[in-house]
Amino acid sequence: MTALPHETASAQLPLTYWALKRVIDVVGAALALIFSSPLLAIIALWVVIDSKGPVFFVQPRVGAKRIRCQGRWLWAPTRFNCYKFRTMIHKADPALHQAYVAALIQNDQQQIDQIQGEKTTAKKLVHDPRVTRVGKYLRMWSMDELPQFFNVLLGDMSLVGPRPAIPYEVELYQPWHMQRLLTKPGLTGLWQVTARSSADFDDMVRLDIAYIQNQNLSMDLKILFKTPLEVLKRSGAY
Rank of each mutant, 00 (worst) to 15 (best):
R163V: 01
R86M: 08
T183D: 06
G236H: 05
T87V: 01
K226G: 03
L172Q: 10
N216T: 03
A165E: 13
D208M: 03
V170Y: 07
G155D: 04
Y100V: 06
H177V: 02
T120C: 01
M1Q: 06
K52G: 11
Q12C: 02
M1T: 09
Q213D: 14
E230S: 15
Y17D: 04
V101G: 02
S218F: 15
F56R: 12
A11N: 00
I24S: 01
Y100N: 01
A30V: 01
L172I: 04
P147Y: 03
L207H: 11
Y238A: 14
T121F: 01
R206M: 04
G161S: 01
C69S: 15
D156A: 02
A11S: 03
I67Y: 03
P162V: 05
M157C: 09
L20D: 08
V48N: 05
P164L: 03
P38I: 05
V27T: 13
V152W: 05
T188I: 08
P162F: 09
A210K: 12
Q59D: 13
K119W: 07
S51Y: 04
L20G: 01
M143Q: 04
Q70A: 15
L153R: 04
W18V: 03
G53M: 07
P60T: 09
D144P: 00
S142C: 12
R133V: 08
I43R: 02
M88I: 09
Y137D: 00
N81M: 10
G189Q: 02
G71L: 14
G117Y: 08
A29H: 06
L45I: 13
D220F: 12
R79P: 05
F80D: 05
A9T: 08
L20M: 14
R68F: 13
F80C: 03
H90L: 08
L45A: 14
H97M: 13
G71F: 11
D93P: 01
K136L: 13
W176S: 14
W75A: 00
P129N: 10
D108N: 15
D203T: 15
W75K: 01
Y238E: 12
P185T: 09
Q215Y: 04
V126R: 14
F225V: 15
P175H: 11
L40Q: 00
Q213E: 15
T78Y: 05
D113S: 05
Q192C: 00
L31I: 11
Y100H: 12
N214S: 13
L221H: 00
Q179C: 03
N216Q: 02
K226L: 10
Y100M: 10
W176D: 08
K124E: 03
S10E: 11
P5H: 05
I42G: 10
L224N: 02
S218E: 11
Q215N: 14
Q12S: 11
R79G: 03
P164T: 09
E7C: 13
L96V: 09
S36C: 12
